[in-house]
């Protein structure tokens, strides 16, 4: 599903070059559950942003479902993000003036889906995440765990094939963090590929595949024993 070949991502800070990613090659098949770990500044977020088409590699080839991404125009890449990729962020990134339901509805609106079809889908998504009674609440009226669940509902409403989560539990206490991870794992069990960046070794242990990064390179990549 995903194939990275010799990916470099170089930032220029003044005169200095920062190799956020250096010669990263990686393959991930459909339906995998991958945890990316490593010290701060090792390039985890950069990797995730490139996988999610929010950022472009300086060098190297990225193929998503066999299509080379660099061949796509900006608008086509936006379409890929809309239809195939769901993001879950550490800071939730809900729009504060919109209700939970309206936040979840956004991707459907961007996709130009009729209101008649949007409402039931939003209702169902909120229901499956136990948020039915919070549909009309705005983000500031929700707990952190609830906010992240709204964000997950939003990330999955378009039925993507890949979910990218950058420290999804980083801003949550252990209980609601566990809840969120449970939900993400449930989604993975239903066939969606899941890539989670985390600092928490306990969370990393739960994934079937562990990638550890340092200095923009993959230090280890191992499959958990079943």
């Amino acid at each position: 599903m995903i194939r990275l070949s010799h990916i470099d991502r170089v930032f220029f800070v003044g005169e200095e070059q920062v190799h956020a990613l250096a010669d990263v090659s990686l393959e991930i098949s459909a339906g995998e559950y991958v945890a990316v770990m490593g010290p701060s500044g090792s390039g985890k977020s950069t990797l995730l942003n490139i996988l999610g088409l929010l950022d472009r590699p300086t060098k190297g080839l990225y193929q998503l479902e066999n299509d080379p991404i660099s061949a796509l125009s900006n608008e086509q890449q936006a379409q890929v993000r809309l239809n195939k990729i769901g993001f879950v962020f550490q800071f939730f990134h809900l729009i504060p003036r919109l209700t939970a339901a309206e936040n979840v509805e956004l991707p459907l609106i961007l996709a130009g889906i009729d209101p008649g079809q949007r409402k039931p889908r939003v209702r169902q998504a909120l229901e499956s995440l136990g948020l039915s009674d919070r549909a009309r609440h705005r983000p500031d009226q929700l707990s952190g765990g609830q906010r992240q669940r709204v964000a997950i509902a939003r990330a999955t409403i378009m039925r993507p094939s890949l979910i990218l989560a950058d420290e999804p539990t980083g801003n949550l206490d252990r209980t609601s963090g566990n809840e969120v991870i449970q939900i993400l794992e449930d989604l993975n069990r239903s066939g969606i590929s899941l890539i989670v960046v985390t600092h928490d070794p306990a969370l990393g242990e739960r994934a079937k595949r562990n990638i550890v990064m340092t200095d923009g390179q993959i230090l280890s990549d191992r499959q958990q024993a079943p």
């Binding site: 993000r81 809309l82 993001f87």
Partner: peptide, 16 residues
């Protein structure tokens, strides 16, 4: 800013 970034992450294109 973060709202715009989010819209882009959700799949909003330049023209949208």
């Amino acid at each position: 800013k973060s709202e715009i970034g989010l819209l882009k992450a959700l799949g909003a294109g330049y023209s949208q």
